[in-house]
Structures are given as C-alpha cells and as structure tokens.
C-alpha cells in the first residue's frame, strides 16, 4: 500500500502547465491541419472530383434549362455558378463530416486533443476551403468558355470570396455543432441544397421571384453572396455591394459566435 503511494509520488505528472500564447496556437493549428488532412486524404480525391463535377456540371446544366441562352442569362449563369460551388462545401461537406465523426465516435476524441479548439476549427476551415476553391474556379472557367462571357475581374473578388467562404464554413460548423441529431443535420443540409438550387436568385434575376421571397432573400446569406461575387466578376451589373457585405458579415459573426459558444462549452 505504502509502496504504491511512493511510486505515485515519483511519477512526474505530464503537461500540467497549460500551453497558451500565439506560438502554441500556431503549433496546434499546423498540427491539426496535418491531422485534418490525414483524415480527409483517403477521400480528398473523391471530394475534389465531386466538387469539380458539381461546379462544372451546374455551369452546363443551367444552360440546358433555357430554350435560348441570351447574353444576360449567360452572364448570370457564369457569375452565379462560383457561388453555387462554394455553398455545398460549408453547408454540406462540413456538417456531414461532423456527423460522421459523431457517429464514428471520433468527435469527442478530437475535442479532447490538447490543442486550442479555435485552432482545430480554423484548421478544418483551411483544409475544406482548399478543397472547395479549385472547383469553384474551374466552374467559372468552364462557364466562361461555354457561354463566351466577358468577365471584368476586380480586387473586390478577393474579399467577396474570402468572406463568403468564411461565412459558409462558420454557419455550417455552428449548425453541425448545435444540432446533435445526425438525421436532422442531414435533413437540413439537403433542404438547404434544394432551396439554394431552385429558390434562390443566384443564376436568375431576383425580379423573377415574388416580392415576399425577394425580401426574405435579402436577409438570408445566399443571395448577398451571389451579389458580392458577381460584383467582383463584372462591371456595372451589381450597383450596391455595401448591403450584401453587411448581411454576409452579420451571418459570419452569427456563425462564428455560435461555433465559438458550442466549441467552448463543456458537456
């Protein structure tokens, strides 16, 4: 008995000092990026191909819907598809990966790793965004080639795409963390994709919608996303980008806040 106590005394406790500060955060962030990448690597090729297919596929598919694709329609499709390609990454891939982790039981394990949780979330954001952006760019190129649209890229595109990506990931993450039932998450993501593909004025003008729906879309994040990305790709089509940026900013804060709250609480 006393021997056992003695042994306990000699063992040096491991890591009782809480690591903190920017250096520890960056270290945790890079470690978690490697962890995320190792996790996703078996699927990365597949996810990549699906992203490209979705983006490119939609760029072609929407053209088939119209008897004749006139100049305005072509421009709307080409500049709308990058938005459509970004949305599934945040609103489908990330919630689904959280669901898979929950079902496989790895979720709690990952949360228990001695790394700041904000570093974990940021790492998963960077890896997922890196997988989504090439498909988005390719969709734009294919649209440009198919419909022969003239694009005017401006510096606005950079903040537009970055903020939109952060918003999608933040809201997607927040949703996946707060809604713990995998089935409900699945239902929400599928319903969102359906709404985004058909009922959101991304590849068609907002004036096609009934007024009530137009008002609703002004406060939902998807239409503003399409507006700011379109503003970065064209000249003179979108006149006001302040409002849309504000809406996306609010959604980003909301998503980040929810994620931070869900990440920080204990259960």
């Amino acid at each position: 008995m006393s021997a056992a106590t003695n042994t306990m005394d000699v063992v040096t406790p491991m890591g009782t000092v809480v690591r903190r500060g920017p250096a520890a955060w960056v270290r945790g962030f890079t470690d978690m990026m490697r962890f995320e990448w190792a996790n996703i690597r078996p699927w990365a090729g597949l996810v990549f191909i699906v992203q490209i297919m979705m983006g490119v596929g939609m760029a072609l598919m929407y053209g088939f819907f119209y008897p004749t694709v006139d100049e305005t329609t072509a421009l709307l499709i080409t500049t709308g598809v990058p938005t459509l390609a970004l949305i599934p990454m945040g609103f489908v891939l990330i919630p689904n990966s959280v669901v898979t982790q929950r079902m496989a039981g790895t979720f709690d394990f990952i949360w228990s790793l001695p790394v700041p949780r904000s570093a974990q979330v940021s790492a998963s954001f960077v890896v997922n965004a890196a997988l989504a952006l090439p498909g988005t760019a390719l969709a734009l190129l294919v649209g440009k080639w198919r419909y022969g649209v003239d694009l005017h890229l401006s510096a606005l595109l950079v903040p537009a795409v970055l903020l939109s990506t952060v918003m999608c990931v933040a809201v997607g993450y927040g949703m996946a963390l707060l809604v713990t039932n995998p089935l409900v998450v699945n239902l929400i993501t599928n319903a969102l994709v359906f709404i985004v593909l058909l009922f959101t004025p991304i590849v068609y003008p907002a004036s096609n919608l009934p007024t009530v729906m137009m008002r609703i879309h002004e406060v939902l994040p998807f239409y503003p996303m399409a507006q700011v990305i379109r503003a970065g790709l064209t000249e003179g089509i979108v006149t006001d980008v302040g409002g849309p940026f504000l809406v996306i900013g609010v959604w980003t804060l909301l998503g980040t806040g929810l994620t931070a709250w869900a990440v920080g609480r204990r259960h």
């Binding site: 008897p67 359906f194 058909l198 009922f199 068609y204 003008p205 096609n208």
Partner: peptide, 21 residues
C-alpha cells in the same frame, strides 16, 4: 415536397415561363 418544389421552382428561372417549358 421535391416534386412540388421542382414544378414551382422551375418557373423562377424564367421571367415568364414559356408554355412548352
């Protein structure tokens, strides 16, 4: 919901949906 959504949503792609579409 899927069927009804598609039938109604398709019209939004057009300013005024042509009869054939």
């Amino acid at each position: 919901m899927f069927g009804v959504g598609y039938v109604l949503g398709f019209a939004l792609f057009f300013h005024e949906i042509p009869r054939t579409a």
